[in-house]
Simulated scan of single mutants.
Amino acid sequence: MTPNKEDYLKCIYEIGQEHEKINNKQIAAKMQVSAPAVSEMIKKMLAEGLIAKDKAHGYLLTGKGLPLVSDLYRKHRLIEVFLVDYLHYAIDEIHQEAEVLEHTVSAAFIERLDRVLEYPRFCPHGGTIPKKGELLKETYHLPLNRAKKSGSYCVRRIHDDFLLLDYLAKHELKLGQLIELRQVDSYAKTYTIVYNGKKLDIPENIAAQIYIEKKE
């Protein structure tokens, strides 16, 4: 399978985590390619049985496509752990390196890497690392913008995006940080949190990329 096709599969998976229906326009925007390019790749993946077209949900990964996506995330996240723990990369530097390496390393390399790293459960961004042969199932899947009640939460996972990581770094908001959700403004679409004596109003598009766990 080509790296380009693998990227399309991951793209469809990621869009599906945020939206109920996946269309060509969303894929083109996320992949930053033209509409004709998306149409051509979609036809190929449909023909290969990697995705299916559904009236209600647009495109869905199939029983053939899902294991491939899980394997890609496993590779990517294990590489990220290695880059941070052994090569001392900063958190905001690892994504692009892992994007390149995930398409080039062998399965044998990944198995040895997993063993050397002592089978980590999470990547540096808090994403779950599936075991070999397992489908990806995120341990932390509640985004801040879907929190129903005010109260105490812990930041458990952050979407792997450079601009997001830069934004959070500027506001000293890190993985594992305890926060207090004080207010949800449905009109302004902001989420007011307090942590370390600071108050921050987070817009919805950013809150959707921060995954939290309710603390009792």
Rank of each mutant, 00 (worst) to 15 (best):
M1E: 06
D7A: 11
Y8D: 07
E14T: 10
E14H: 14
I22F: 09
N24T: 12
K25A: 09
K25M: 14
Q32P: 02
A35F: 05
V38F: 02
K44D: 06
L46F: 05
I51M: 10
A52M: 09
K53D: 07
H57C: 13
G63F: 07
Y73T: 00
E80K: 10
E80T: 00
V81A: 02
L83Y: 03
Y86L: 10
L87W: 08
H88A: 08
H88L: 10
Y89V: 01
E93F: 00
I94E: 00
H95P: 01
E97L: 08
T104Y: 07
A108S: 12
F122P: 00
G127L: 08
G133P: 03
L135V: 06
L136M: 01
T139F: 04
T139Q: 10
T139V: 13
Y140F: 14
H141L: 10
L144E: 04
N145I: 04
N145G: 03
A147D: 05
C154A: 12
R156Q: 15
I158R: 01
I158Y: 01
D161G: 03
L163W: 08
L164V: 14
L165S: 08
L168D: 14
A169H: 10
H171L: 05
L175E: 08
R182G: 06
D185W: 07
D185E: 08
S186Q: 11
Y187L: 11
I193W: 04
V194S: 08
K198Q: 15
K199M: 04
K199Y: 07
